[in-house]
Write a protein that binds this DNA or RNA. Sequence first.
DNA 1: AATTTAATTGATAAGGTATTTCAGTTAATA
DNA 2: TATTAACTGAAATACCTTATCAATTAAATT
Lengths: 144, 144
Amino acid sequence: MNDIMEKLKDKLKEKGYKLTPQRRATLDTIINNQGKHLSTEEIYDMVKTECPEIGLATVYRTLQLLDELDIITKINFDDGCSRYELNNHEDNHQHHHLICVKCGEVIEVEVDLLETLEEEIEKNYDFKIHDHKVKFFGYCSNCK
Amino acid sequence: MNDIMEKLKDKLKEKGYKLTPQRRATLDTIINNQGKHLSTEEIYDMVKTECPEIGLATVYRTLQLLDELDIITKINFDDGCSRYELNNHEDNHQHHHLICVKCGEVIEVEVDLLETLEEEIEKNYDFKIHDHKVKFFGYCSNCK
DNA sequence: AATTTAATTGATAAGGTATTTCAGTTAATA
DNA sequence: TATTAACTGAAATACCTTATCAATTAAATT
Ligand SMILES: [Mn+2]
Ligand SMILES: [Mn+2]
Ligand SMILES: [Zn+2]
Ligand SMILES: [Zn+2]
C-alpha cells in the first residue's frame, strides 16, 4: 500500500469510515492518471476495468469524499462537468493551469509567484488567504 | 442610451442581430447591479419587474450572447449556477475575486500584480496569455 | 471464527441548471 | 407598408449530480 492510500486509510479511520475496494480502486485510478484532469465519467469508465461492478453513484460519492478529505481537488474548466486531480502533499496550494482557447490543451504551472500579490491583498483587504485557483487563457505553442 | 447600450447596439448590428426590449432590459439589470455577481435566475427575477413577459430561456440566451459579444463575463463560484458581471472596458482583463470560505462574501481586487508571473509563463511555457481568472479563498475581516 | 452494527453500495428515481424545439411575433431595412 | 430573417415564450428535452432505499460489507467486538 502506497503513501497516499495509507493516508486515505488513516483519514477514513479517524472519521469512522471504511476503506472499501471501490474507494481503493477510485483512488488508484486517479494516482495512475496524474496530470490528466479526469472527469467523473472518465474515472468511472477506467475504474470499471478494475472493479466492474462499481456504480456511477459510488464514484460520485467517493470523489466527493476524497475532496472533503483533502486528497484530491475538484477543478472546473467550464466544460460542463467536474474534473479532479491528486493534491500535492508537499505544499498545500493548487498549481496554476494554462488553458489553450484554440485546442483546449491544459498545461500545469508549478511556479507560484503569487507571494507579492497575496501579501498585498492580505494587507490591503484584511483578508487571510489559504488557497487560490488561477487559470490563464491564451494560445499554446502549437496554436499561436 | 448610455455607452454600454450603444456598444451593444453596434456589436449586434455588426452581426445582423437585433436590439430587442428583452436584451435592453437584461443588460440594464446588469448595469444597475454592478458588483453583485448575479445568477441567471436572479437576473431573470429582476428583469421581470421591467419586462414581465420575458421568458427564462430568453434570459439564458441573452446572457450567452452578451458573453460572446464580450460585454459581460461568466463567473463560476462553484455554487451550482453561472453568474455574470459587466466587463471593464478600459483594460481587457478580469479583476480578481476574494471568496470568504466562511460567510461567502466576495470581494473584488482591482490591482493586478500578475505581470511578472505572466511574463515568466509566456517565456518558460511558450504560451501567449490573453486573459486570466484568479480566485483567492480564505477568511474575510469579519470571519478571521 | 462468529457476531454485531453502522457504514457502504448499486440501481434507480429525482433534482436542478441549461439547452433545444417550434410556432407565433417583431425589429430593421427597403 | 411590406418583407424577411431574427427573435421570443412555453414547453420539452438533455445532462450532470444527488437522494433514496433495500441489500451488502468492513471492521470492531465477543
Ligand atoms: Mn492540474
Ligand atoms: Mn467581480
Ligand atoms: Zn493549443
Ligand atoms: Zn467572511
